[in-house]
């Protein structure tokens, strides 16, 4: 996590658990689809920024949320993510390039 958020093109948004290992990547914006298909420890790339993404990431046990295309969440989302131990980083790149840059 810490390594990824320090990489070029990525920016930490909320990193309460920087030691978390990333073991895969899942891309998707439909939350139930993500819960059905993403694996624990995946980096989850999405453009959704509403508060529910924090609960989905927490319950599906993904390593982090990666907000693609430079989208930014509300302050309340960042606050909740920090409180719930959910990592969020942002990427200026589209989802595909973001996944390539993570490169797992």
């Amino acid at each position: 996590m810490n390594e990824l958020s320090a990489m070029q093109g990525f920016k930490p948004v909320a990193v309460p658990d920087g030691e978390r290992e990333i073991n895969g990547v899942y891309i998707g914006d439909l939350l139930s689809w993500v819960m059905g298909r993403a694996k624990a420890d995946d980096a989850w790339i999405t453009i959704m920024t509403n508060i529910n993404v924090v609960a989905v990431a927490s319950l599906a046990d993904t390593a982090c949320i990666v907000l693609a295309e430079g989208v930014n969440p509300d302050a309340s989302v960042v606050e909740t993510a920090n409180a719930k131990g959910v990592n969020i980083i942002s990427s200026e790149m589209p989802a595909y390039e973001t996944a390539k840059a993570i490169g797992i």
């Binding site: 914006d29 439909l30 939350l31 139930s32 689809w33 819960m35 059905g36 959704m48 509403n50 529910n52 993404v53």
Partner: peptide, 15 residues
Amino acid sequence: SLGFGAGMGLPNMKR
């Protein structure tokens, strides 16, 4: 518009 309603809720519960 929030990313729900994809028709995956009950199938996920079963899964």
